[in-house]
């Protein structure tokens, strides 16, 4: 499994996303630029310039028409994927940490940061999947997180629920239409931030990664804990592989917490676990710093990881992978 190394960012990666057919990969980093790449050969298609602060998040609508992004410049932007033109800017009071399109691409959620008298929120925006259309300024829904700020969020199946992970380690389920809090559960250790939340392909269950060194699989319907994947390092990201029953976790001790140097200390590896049996199957080395984000090809052909080291590594699964499990 020889990876393709994508060297286009000058600072640490924050999120990677595949398009629905898995052919194109979008990456964003703290260097304020979004890059698009062919996943098959690592060739760069283009870049999206416009944000004035570190980029935290990107997402692509299911028809691969629009690209949404959120950044530390307190904006969410919508881009014409083909031309690279910014077609809409929504302004907020604080940084935007996560964006996520719903299943049909008609709504976009955005998680905003808590800062200086502003509580963290989850905002829903109506989107017209048309690069020519006039997008509404109106916020369709605002969920205010007064308990513990949301750090990540995603839409469930049929856009029925919004599932959010919080700074205190809890996971909550909101009604996708009314924004009403339905249920909340202390999924991870108290005070250990949920760092990532990714849905299964049919959005009926999801995986959370946390600083408490574990990742967990939950039902989107009722937040039932399905599986637990323990590791030995704080986790930043977790993804569910389609086709094969695996999950991929990534993390590593942040540089300032590492007392002695050397990659050995950091545990900068992508870890594969069996989704159903919960045991670790293998690790993939390569990054020089913690893994901040992993994404899997929706067609199950490979995965990509983005690191604190500024690199994206795109891996195509080899034969052995498909024979296994």
């Amino acid at each position: 499994m020889r990876p393709i190394l994508l060297q286009g960012h000058e600072r640490s990666l924050t999120q990677i996303k595949y398009t629905k057919d898995g052919d194109i990969l979008f990456s964003c980093a703290k260097d304020q630029v979004i890059c698009a790449w062919f996943s098959a050969n690592g060739e760069r298609l283009g870049t999206y310039h416009g944000h004035q602060g570190a980029l935290w998040t990107v997402d692509i609508d299911p028809s691969t028409t629009l690209l949404a992004s959120g950044a530390a410049d307190n904006t969410v932007r919508l881009w014409d994927i083909r031309t690279g033109k910014c077609v809409k800017v929504w302004n907020f009071d604080t940084a935007v940490k996560r964006v996520d399109f719903n299943e049909d691409g008609t709504q976009l959620l955005a998680v905003t940061e808590k800062r200086m008298g502003f509580l963290g929120t989850i905002v829903v925006l109506d989107v017209k999947v048309d690069v020519e259309a006039e997008q509404s300024d109106e916020k369709a829904l605002v969920i205010t997180c007064d308990e513990s700020k949301a750090t990540v969020a995603a839409w469930s199946y049929l856009s029925r629920y919004i599932i959010a992970g919080h700074e205190d380690g809890s996971v909550s389920q909101y009604d996708g239409k009314t924004g009403e809090l339905i249920y909340s559960t202390p999924a991870h250790e108290d005070g250990m931030q949920v760092t990532d939340l990714q849905m299964s392909s049919d959005r009926t269950y999801f995986i959370t990664a946390s600083k408490d060194k574990s990742a967990k699989l939950h039902s989107a319907r009722d937040l039932t804990l399905l599986k637990t994947y323990p590791s030995d390092t704080p986790l930043n990201t977790a993804a569910i592989t389609p086709k094969k029953p695996f999950v991929i976790l990534g993390g590593g001790q942040a540089a300032m917490d590492v007392t002695t140097t050397g990659a050995r200390q950091g545990k900068f590896e992508a870890r594969f676990y069996h989704k159903v049996f919960e045991d670790e199957i293998g690790r993939v080395k390569g990054h020089f710093g913690p893994l901040n984000t992993v994404a899997v090809d929706p067609l199950g052909r490979g995965y990509a990881s983005g690191g604190e080291d500024g690199y994206v590594r795109v891996h195509a699964f080899d034969r052995g992978y498909f024979d296994f499990g």
Binding site: L158, D202, T204, Y205, L226, V276
Partner: peptide, 18 residues
Amino acid sequence: LNEWLAWREREEEELKAD
């Protein structure tokens, strides 16, 4: 494994019903 498959089946059925 059976437990997992059973859960998936239930979920898929409910999803169809939704």
